[in-house]
Computed example of a mutant assay.
Amino acid sequence: MPELVGRIQGVAFDVDTGRLDVVPDAPAVGTKLRWSAPKLIAAANETVPGANVRALHILAPAPMKASSSPAAADTTPQPTTPAVPVERRTPPDGYRRAIEAHRQAAPPSQVDPTIAQAVERQNAVMRELSQRAFPEAEQRADDQPGPTDTGVQQRRREFAATETAALLRARAERAHRAGAAVLLPRAAPLRTSA
């Protein structure tokens, strides 16, 4: 990508994993690298035969060092030394004593029995209010529709009446245009909603 020439610098290549570490000169360039990583990996593999770049790792932005020309840089990937695993050290005695003192000073939380009883009473009252407000389905007869079902059925009936009236009017207008006289049945007045 020509717009990235001189704006990024390869700093490391791990032969075992195929990871190429690069440093952009600005955060915007780093974002552009992340978006175009597959293209850059393919271009690196075409430019350097046998490189086998599989991943691009974009490091934090840093200013570029001045060089004579970007093309003069060595394009052969340099293997890096494998990282030494970090050994976990045993924490010092003072640290362990401080952690133990903190655990003893902060006792585990205990539930106050009076608070637990108050919560249970409140839950019982809320259950009772809920049952009064929303009666269970078993309490009403099986053939009786629920309050929600009644409203849905009413809206469906009103929709059907409106649809029938519209169809009758459309037929009458079509017949009137054709020159025939048609008498419309008198429809019941429609309810309006607020």
Rank of each mutant, 00 (worst) to 15 (best):
P49E: 15
A51T: 08
V53Y: 05
V53K: 02
A55E: 14
L56V: 13
L56H: 01
A60M: 07
A60R: 06
P61R: 05
A62S: 14
A62L: 11
A62Y: 02
A66F: 00
S67W: 01
S68P: 00
A71P: 01
A72D: 14
A72F: 07
D74W: 05
D74G: 03
T75V: 15
T76H: 14
T76N: 13
P77W: 13
Q78T: 15
A83P: 08
A83I: 08
P85S: 05
V86H: 06
R88Q: 12
R89V: 13
D93G: 07
D93T: 09
Y95F: 15
R96P: 00
R97D: 11
A101C: 02
Q104D: 12
A105K: 03
A105C: 04
A106D: 09
P107Q: 04
P107V: 10
S109Y: 10
S109I: 11
D112K: 01
P113R: 04
P113F: 03
P113N: 04
T114I: 11
T114W: 05
A116H: 02
A116Y: 03
A116D: 12
Q117D: 11
V119C: 02
R121F: 04
Q122H: 07
V125T: 14
M126R: 11
M126V: 14
M126I: 15
R127A: 15
L129T: 10
S130W: 02
S130T: 09
S130I: 02
S130A: 11
R132S: 07
R132K: 07
F134T: 07
P135N: 07
A137C: 04
A137I: 12
R140M: 07
R140D: 04
R140T: 12
